[in-house]
Write a protein that binds this DNA or RNA. Structure first.
Lengths: 151, 151
DNA sequence: ATTTTATAGTTGTATATACAAATGTGAATT
DNA sequence: AATTCACATTTGTATATACAACTATAAAAT
């Protein structure tokens, strides 16, 4: 459905405004859908993100600022996210012995198991939307979003 | 910048996953930028959205569920958003005399003034990003996002 | 007329986000 | 060696979001 219909806009909309609303609305749709997948596993989207980053470390610990810079929402509070994961035994954390300012965060086996259980659902989620586009359109969309962002 | 560089991804990413991350990250960039514009006016993005919807009513009151259905984030709490706007005298609210279940929300002159002050900044914000694309690319991006969403 | 169902909005609670200030540690400067 | 500066993380506070439960009113069914 076109964005004007969704938001029941009465006035015609500039295409520049439409992009903004389309991106924001699409993000909402994606996120709502993804939260449904996560709900039975009792983790939030941002918690999932942290686990995914930690798995990507392949056994190496990640400290807080490494996690932060790889997250989508740069302003979210990594300390408190890790706290939540710690309570569920999905990660471990200890002070880095070489530099005691840093914290080493590692994903546990239990954390890896949660991700493994989610993997097929996550792939299905990604394809649920992208199946509406052909391979060329998918590339175009990625390219246009990247071009759009760059000031 | 490409999304893999931004998120410092070590593993190659499927194009379907890239779209998700690109949409979510682009939304973050847009929202952060927009919040900077709103900050001096001391309203949040969602509060701005409500005001914009009320102005769109052109003098007719909007009740809570009308506001809700025109908002981007369908799950946000309209009652509390309107509460905040009420405290700042940007809207009025009264019980609808014909149907006492409904609430009539109207934007005040002060609310209209805030929007008027923001209008040029909002347009500049929209064009700040879309200037990276030509007219055809802008249309394409809107079209692809709409097509992508439709299940 | 009373009960049931549907609609509109509010409130409670837990969690998340935004932003600033504070703490602790290490490196550089004087 | 003491001071200053930079870095890494945590904490505090206000606000926002997600979701469920609740209240009030209206419409429909019996």
């Amino acid at each position: 459905m076109k964005i004007e219909e969704i938001l029941k806009s009465t006035v015609p909309m500039d295409n520049s405004k439409k992009i903004i609303l389309n991106v924001l609305y699409t993000q909402n749709v994606i996120t709502e859908n993804f939260n449904e997948i996560l709900k039975p596993h009792e983790i939030s989207g941002e918690q999932y993100n942290v686990l995914r980053i930690l798995r990507g470390q392949k056994g190496n610990p990640a400290n807080m600022c490494v996690i932060q810079e790889r997250m989508l929402a740069k302003t979210s509070n990594t300390t408190r996210l890790v706290d939540k994961l710690l309570l569920k035994d999905l990660v471990t954390r200890k002070v880095c012995p070489e530099n005691r300012r840093k914290i080493e965060v590692l994903i546990t086996q239990k954390g890896l198991d949660v991700l493994a259980a989610l993997d097929p659902k996550v792939i299905a989620h990604e394809q649920f939307f992208s199946k509406n586009l052909n391979a060329e359109e998918i590339n175009q969309l990625n390219h246009l979003l990247e071009k759009y962002r760059n000031q």
